Simulated assay, not measured.
Amino acid sequence: MAREDLYKVLGVDKKASPEEVKKAYRKLARQYHPDRNPDNKSAEERFKEVQGAYDVLGDAEKRKQYDRGGLSSLFGGGAPGGAPGGGFAGGAGPQDFGGISDILSNLFGNAPGGPPGGGKGGQRRQRPEKGRDVETSVQVTFQQAMEGVQVSLTVPTAQTCGTCRGAGTKPGTSPIMCPRCQGRGVEAQGQGVFSISTPCSQCGGGGTIIEDPCATCRGSGSIRTVKKYRVNIPPGVREGSKVRINGKGEAGINGGPPGDLFVLTHVESSSIFDRKGDNVEVEVPITFPEAARGAEVEVPTLNGRKKLRVPAGTSSGTVQRLRGEGPAKLGGGGHGDIHYRFVIDVPSDLSKEQSDAVDKLSKATKGDPRSRLFAATTEGAGQSSGKGKGGKSEG
């Protein structure tokens, strides 16, 4: 497969910037997404091709390696949509280095033919690795977030190839030891303890090369597919909460366990309730007579309605709490509270009857409520003046 193929899949030039690649991918992904093309196998296949191409061209390192040697360099003879998290032959990547034998091998710069860094016969063993986690998002209403809801999701992901069972090789064949690094997966530059080890440029650090790739996955060990799930969103989620679905991510590498699926929740705002951590807040308008004399008012809850007693003399901004009636706490920690903030409703335009009533109330109200603001100032000034006189008389 020519190296220009992936660029043709996304419809971009080889010199396209990362932003141009991303823009082209998003446009095509929206166009061919299974949700927009139900029961359209052609669109589904095109969607997989677009995903596979972006897996390579959307990653700076994979794109460089692809441009240097095409698919044979990046996938060991494979195709776009390679093994998750790596994209190297056999599913291994630079992160595969580790263990005391590898460290000693890298440190002392074993020569080809000497003790290998990984296994018997000069070939590095491919350790099982967990598959890559997958993240998707879902939009729910405020009420669904409070009560919990089951949603349907369509998730593009990579799954283990059923033909080669993830090996990447043609059934009945096996990878061969890399002739360049003699199976160690690294190339050493320099001598002794000052040598620098880098991933092998031919096998990508896997220690092996696939000569006869699997016809189904073309050597990658995995295939791009679209999975459909029904996921339970628990009650109490908020904006940005992540719901974890174990084992529904991408397939593991070399027999490792699959990754997990994370569902990011976006919660629509409510016209009544304002989320405040584990609690919600509601602004409740009350009239001046209700605030002055006290009253019983009806307020909304997450599940219906309740009545609250407004004490006589309630001032605007007073908060009354309804314990345990708020959102469910994630993790089984009970429920939060609902905070009701009473706000005195002042009409902007008074009718003649209302204006007369306000005049009567004003005449009946005795005293200046702002006088106490100046009492302390006046008292302080008098004390200051007295001290000054006393100082003079003593002098």
Rank of each mutant, 00 (worst) to 15 (best):
R275V: 14
L261I: 12
R238G: 14
D274Y: 06
G252F: 01
S270W: 02
A251S: 12
F273E: 02
E250W: 02
P257A: 13
G240W: 00
I245W: 00
N254I: 08
S241A: 11
I233D: 03
G277I: 07
S241E: 02
L264N: 14
F262S: 12
G236A: 07
S270Y: 05
R238F: 05
H266D: 15
P234Y: 05
R244V: 14
K248M: 12
S241Y: 08
I245K: 06
P258A: 11
G255P: 03
D274S: 13
G256W: 04
N254D: 09
V267I: 09
L261H: 08
I233E: 00
S241G: 11
R275E: 09
G249T: 04
D274K: 12
R238Q: 11
T265Q: 00
S269F: 04
A251Y: 01
P235S: 12
G255S: 07
V243R: 01
G256A: 10
G236Q: 04
S271G: 14
K248E: 14
N254V: 10
S270G: 13
K276D: 14
L261G: 09
T265K: 01
K276G: 09
R244F: 07
I253A: 11
V267Y: 00
I272Q: 14
N246T: 15
D260F: 06
G249P: 03
P235G: 10
N254R: 15
V243E: 05
G247Y: 01
G256M: 07
G249I: 02
I233N: 04
G252I: 02
A251E: 04
V237M: 00
S269Y: 03
G277W: 03
G249V: 00
G247C: 10
D260E: 09
A251L: 02
E268I: 11
T265F: 00
P257N: 09
P258Y: 00
I233P: 03
F262P: 13
E239S: 13
T265H: 01
E239K: 11
G259D: 01
K248C: 11
S270L: 06
F262V: 11
L261Y: 04
E250D: 08
F273N: 05
S270V: 05
G247S: 12
G247W: 01
V263H: 02
N254C: 11
S269V: 09
V267D: 03
F262M: 13
D274T: 12
K242M: 09
P257H: 04
V263A: 05
I272A: 10
R244T: 15
I233W: 02
L261E: 03
E268Y: 12
R238I: 09
R275Q: 11
I272R: 15
S270F: 03
E239P: 06
D260W: 03
D274F: 05
D260P: 12
E239V: 10
V237C: 04
K248I: 06
